[in-house]
Design a protein around this nucleic acid. Structure first.
Lengths: 200, 200, 200, 200
DNA sequence: AATGAATGAGTTTTCATTCAT
DNA sequence: AATGAATGAAAACTCATTCAT
């Protein structure tokens, strides 16, 4: 049952590594990074601390892996290139926004972690670096969309939409299920659609 | 020189307590809660740890006091009722938005702490309670402003503005000084002013 | 019984610090630096690890304090200027050699530590620096004595005596009490006295 | 390509074992015993830890093997019986001393390790045993030479020469290349030659 | 024979909290 | 009221050794 060949072994290690990241992520998200010890994680994934340290040099590397993972998940849903190929800019914006709301609803915890880490752990330089890169990428992509849409001030609008998306995430976390997520989504999307109509 | 009467003593203690809270807040905001030790705080306020523990039962109580304090500061700046008495709704919205940006620029750290605590420490029930109350109050006040402005969907708009404000705070923290804070402020304010003009 | 005034407290802390250093030294010397844990030391001095860390920032600082201590002890015994004032060079050489053997017998461990550190921990630059300075000083002083004695090659003789002293220390450590320390001492001293007689 | 017969296998294992010892020695000498991990050694000799453990029961056994090896190297150079067969005692003493200085110059690192281990690791009983045996052998051999030379106190003189040799090694390590190794060698050899002349 | 995954006890270090003075 | 010495539990991290494959 156990893997024999080298490739199988490597695959096995990769799978285990991902499992660790995903469990660590869950703990970081629910308890906070500083409240989660390596021992907690080791217990959760049912392996020894020593073995855990053969996968990650230190706690910070594990944190960064978790951030990579979470951001990949998030951006996969938002801006998967394949899905957007045949759409026009307005439709893409709609897709992006809807994608974001889907993440928010389906992976509330995960999303909370992004923001939590973005702010709380920002003092760890490597973490700040990772996150600000992702933010810049997202802003860049949104800006290009607005350029394609002929928006008069694409840079500003990109920043604004990015901020709105983040803010809604926070509000949703604070208000919980009483937050009118669906209505706000409609409203934002319509805003961009109307805008287009007005411009025409 | 020391206070003699009981009232003076109580006042003295209250003042000292506030001083501790304010310094603790500053440390929490700059270094993070988990990276700030009781010893650090004692050193900052130049008193012994033992004496500090006569003001607060434990570190968590000090955290809660700090959260109370910070939220009072923030709301004071945003929505001080007195200043707004004679203004019309549009002007109030402008004031609110400008007030928020002022907080953001002048007390970046403080603001960062609010969001940080809002999300990161939200798992502590008492903290979540306090924060969601404040958020609800703010949403309520914004909503009333939009009602006064005759906005077609005041609830939604209130949530949206609240989210935008929070999101800009996050972006500002992530991007740092390269974030075009002023331009975005203008843009948002103009948005609400234009809206009015269009509606008129 | 406990100290009240600030000076008493400071003196008390100083005494305790010295006690720690001396016990740590003993352990380092008998077990080796890397084989002695902070826990071992804490147990030896009957205080908690935490308290120990209020005296020394880390293990290396404790090591350096121990080296300082040991070198002070050793040089005090070998070449205390006061004792040697009224003696002629031959008598001083005798005193130096006897002083060295006294250190060796009374503080075997201590001496072992010097050599042990000289070689094994020499990779820590500050340690090597300190130790080579001491060695140079000793060689210089011996050389001056041989000059005063009219020795034909004082530099060589100083190096040789220094080496002999060190070597005897090592042999004594390896052979233990079966090593004929006293006979060798006589022999060396006589060697220098005979030398004088021959020259006359 | 692999060895087939049992003898070939045994030879192969022996060669590999020696290779491990030699590499381990190098690491111990440059980084220190406690700073060298089994993993480091395994990496250096390009085999797995498991296989390494089939050659040595534990780290201490490997250390002892390394000490054996290093001392054999050293004594081979000093006292190889064959070379000395036809010489008279004085010439042998000269050979011994010159042999020692050659080791010192050509294998400074190696020699440093001997002393380092002799003192620093002496607390490990098995190591102390090994080393003191070697020292006793050397002392015994020197003593016999002095007996053959008709020295009045051969035991003492043997200990003294042994000590001088060790001490010079230490001094050389501490002072580095500024140490007048050649002059001291001449001086010592001449001392024994003169002694002879005087006695005659 | 050979691998390296896996373990767990051990290491250094930190810090909230208590308490004798 | 005020101090800071003292504690001890817990954190991150290491490494000799074992064992399934």
């Amino acid at each position: 049952m156990s893997p024999r060949t080298e490739e199988q072994l490597a695959a096995h290690r990769k799978a285990k590594r991902e499992h660790i990241v995903s469990e660590a992520l869950h703990l970081f998200a629910t308890r906070g990074y500083f409240n989660t010890s390596i021992s907690d994680i080791a217990k959760e994934v049912k392996m020894s601390k020593g073995l855990l340290y053969s996968y990650f040099e230190n706690k910070e590397e594990l944190l960064n892996a978790a951030i990579d993972f979470v951001l990949k998940e998030a951006t996969d849903l938002n801006l998967s290139e394949d899905r957007l190929k045949d759409l026009n800019p307005e439709e893409i914006i709609r897709e992006v926004i809807e994608g974001f709301f889907t993440v928010l609803e389906e992976k509330k915890e995960l999303w909370g972690l992004i923001v939590s880490l973005a702010i709380h752990v920002a003092s760890i330089p490597s973490v700040h670096q990772t996150i600000s890169t992702i933010y810049k990428d997202l802003a860049q992509q949104l800006q290009e969309l607005f350029i394609a849409m002929g928006h008069p001030d694409p840079e500003n609008e990109a920043f604004k939409l990015g901020a709105l998306i983040d803010g809604i995430g926070i509000q949703y976390m604070v208000f919980g299920d009483s937050y009118p997520l669906k209505k706000i989504k409609e409203n934002i999307i319509n805003g961009y659609m109307n805008q287009k109509n007005e411009e025409q």
